[in-house]
Design a protein around this nucleic acid. Sequence first.
DNA 1: GGTTTTTTTTGATATTCATCAAATAGTGAA
DNA 2: TTCACTATTTGATGAATATCAAAAAAAACC
Lengths: 243, 243
Amino acid sequence: MNVDIRMAHLFSTLDDNQVRQVMESSHVGTLKDGESLFETGDEANRFFLVIGGQIKLFRVSSNGDQKIIDIIQPGNTFAEALMFMEHPIYPVSAEALGPAKIMSFDSKRFLQILSESFEVCFRIMGTMSQRLRGLIKEIDDLTLQSATTRMCAMLLRRMEGVGQNHFTLPAAKGVLAARLSMKPETFSRILQNLSTKKILKTKGNEIEILDKSLLRSLAHLESIYGLEPEKPCVLNISSSLRQ
Amino acid sequence: MNVDIRMAHLFSTLDDNQVRQVMESSHVGTLKDGESLFETGDEANRFFLVIGGQIKLFRVSSNGDQKIIDIIQPGNTFAEALMFMEHPIYPVSAEALGPAKIMSFDSKRFLQILSESFEVCFRIMGTMSQRLRGLIKEIDDLTLQSATTRMCAMLLRRMEGVGQNHFTLPAAKGVLAARLSMKPETFSRILQNLSTKKILKTKGNEIEILDKSLLRSLAHLESIYGLEPEKPCVLNISSSLRQ
DNA sequence: GGTTTTTTTTGATATTCATCAAATAGTGAA
DNA sequence: TTCACTATTTGATGAATATCAAAAAAAACC
């Protein structure tokens, strides 16, 4: 099980020696479907890299409802922002969505590396900056958009992601519903509705978009800050400043 | 108009020479009530420090509704996270809430300083980390909580902020409504309702909390990750790593 | 002071989405 | 296959909040 952690953006500029240091404090583990990695409020001394499967980050309300904040895909790190807090506590819970393989790292150890490399500092700042934007966009979606709008935006993103107007939903409907902050029933009804309007056809988890332009207009995607997935950046800035 | 920028957390560890460098690229300006500083989608080459007054950060939906993402108070910086993006673009619009005085800084210049000081790097990472948490909390509030809950939480925060059960609302009701993602009418009705239930008394913008414990239970503040305003941190970590 | 303008409140109604309950479909295991 | 279990769909109803319109209050202006 020789994982090259440099596949992760965060680690991509580490030299061999730094990689060795980081690896020293790392653990690899597997999680069964639904198995918990940590919970909201736990002390956060480690951060994580998803190697395989998906990790769901979520919060639970007092009445048991859960809101999925993000679904982390392989190759991505999460919870690394917390190492800068004095008493780091996970602000979300994390559990596996299906079987997953993850790696964890000691935050303190990584801070040491950070304090030796501006390159890595800039990289982590870039990552955090992107997350900030993502969250602002999320708040936007939640407050300014209706459930239908959110659904359509999600379908469009997915469609453009795979480059086909025929695709499979990236997760179970119930999970997607939570991700979009709606009840499964609502999710189902909206799909039903779009189907009735000949905007799409569904068969199980297979979706076929029939009227792309109508879908787009329902999704209100003329939003000023467009669809581009946000360039990672960082590299060129830090290097251009250095010469 | 000699402003000591070290009052801002972000600049607090800069030495005299660094302060001079930052100041070289700075502008001071005043804004009239409602005057715009920048708009969503504008190129983001500068970041800001509020010296006096308040700056409202918001987004506007296609139907003209606006959601206030944050209200920045004097002594705080904003938009500094964007300097790590390749093509930085403001993800929100900013305008003055009442007359305001602000200072702006050139991002590239500040990046240069960053690339010379781990101290400042860690500080900015700490700030970003806090913002991330704040936004996650915000998403939480928006999706898992009702309008009444949000209102009560806001009132409690305010009450504990001033340390009195009698206080003035920190902004016009309409503004607060937008901040809490509800219509002014709803805001008004909820206050009315709390008043009827003898939880508080209102007179114009003056609020007097009558039943603190009831208010607290309405606000669901037993949430796992408590009320503490989140320690800034950073300092001790970076220094302890250095010795 | 009085007048205009803006903000806040109030009432009536509509809409969206959640809730509850039950039916149906799908999935995995024995 | 059949059983048990889970996920999804459908229908009926309800609650929260938005919308629209207008009144009342407050603030700004002359």
